[in-house]
Design a protein around this nucleic acid. Structure first.
Lengths: 118, 118
DNA sequence: GCCAGGTGCAACCCCAGGGTTGCACTTGCT
DNA sequence: AGCAAGTGCAACCCTGGGGTTGCACCTGGC
């Protein structure tokens, strides 16, 4: 499955350090050691983060000479964005339907206290 | 600040149980107890999740009678989506610039083995 | 050939947070 | 009035994962 479950991708994005990494990798390819020199964490920690990010497709890696460079994949983030947008819209539409029901004066059926019962 | 930091919102979305809750709340307002009856976790656990979700604006709560009903806020998710999309695009454009540089034929240096295309 | 820099693996520490139980309080519904 | 249902708060457990250190192993440049 090329598209990991939503919570997993979001969890990968739910860490400040990983965002730091992604931001740097969004500006251009970098090796883990290079990142470690810039960020306030050890290379090993960065390695673990890269692993997580790679697993959800937010980062791609490539052996270049003796080092491995990584870079941020915008496409994955775009895919996530579209999915979230879709879900958000569905929530909104449901909300609108509820409001419609609530606001419709409906003089006949005065007994309509709540449509969304359990 | 009405717009929490990106990692925080993503972290809120980085939990399967919270997605369960959000999904249900996306279909209509519900109380914590009602959710606890449906989901395999205690009401207290759900309460904590709702707290987290409310703090990042993904859920709104309203006292209704003796119970408190909660509902998913699509607008927040939409805002997140737009932000992620924007960032993803910026990564892509940076990537394109890099590729441009790499692919410029530069007749002298014939050592073009392969630009790390997908 | 040698050394420096880059990587991978493994063991370990430690705390945030997801989950639970228990209790007290309020608020309806009949 | 009285009972059932909903909520809030607090203490507590325990696993996950972010972070570290240490070491062994390549590999490329001088």
């Amino acid at each position: 499955m090329t598209a990991p479950a939503l919570p997993v991708v979001c969890a990968a994005l739910g860490d400040a350090t990983r965002w730091e990494i992604l931001t740097r990798l969004g500006e251009g390819p970098m090796s883990a050691s290079a990142l470690a020199r810039v960020l306030p964490v050890s290379r090993q920690a960065i390695g673990k983060h890269l692993e997580v990010l790679r697993e959800v497709g937010l980062v791609e890696s490539e052996q270049r000479g003796r080092e491995v460079v990584h870079l941020a994949v915008g496409a994955r983030l775009g895919a996530l964005a579209r999915e979230l947008d879709r879900i958000g819209r569905s929530w909104e539409s449901r909300l609108l339907r509820v409001k419609e029901l609530a606001e419709r004066p409906e003089p006949d059926t005065a007994e309509r206290r709540s449509a969304y019962d359990t």
